[in-house]
Amino acid sequence: MTEIHVIENYTPEGKRRAFVLAEDRVGHYPEFREFFVRQFSLGANRLERPGYVRASSGMIYALVFIGRSGEPFPDGIEIYALPDALEPLNDSDVDADLWALLRWMIAGVGGEWRVEQLDATGRLYQLSVAANA
């Protein structure tokens, strides 16, 4: 679970936001929303700033939290890679980083959700990133 590191006080400079993944309903299972609230202090900070994490590829990702009237915050999440402004993404690096981010999330959600179950699901669906998990 050391592949993803939360970065505090990050200020992106010379970077662009490259959209890589979105979740419209992070509270479908409420414990997932609670994980992000805990991890990024969203009860206090809410919309002030994205959450930033660094993945093992070295890429930094911004987690942008989405609010909707009538729903607990956050209701959605958009994940952006932050490459150098004019550089294209490396697809396989992003794929591996996202898988690592999911593993980090599941470990953080905890309870009945276990990383071994995510790995087994990845293997069932023959994801290359899960092959050696």
């Binding site: 993944l21 979105a22 979740e23 309903r25 992070v26 509270g27 479908h28 299972y29 997932f32 929303r33 999440i77 994940i79 996202l98 898988w99 981010l101 999911l102 999330m105 599941i106 009945e112 959700w113 276990r114 179950q117 995510l118 087994a120 699901t121 990845g122 069932l124 669906y125 994801l127």
Partner: peptide, 18 residues
């Protein structure tokens, strides 16, 4: 949870099925 609820869990669904 394995595999059904994990498959469509938040962020996992958009990644795995998307």
């Amino acid at each position: 949870i394995f595999p059904w609820r994990m498959m469509h869990a938040p962020l996992v669904g958009p990644y795995l099925l998307g």
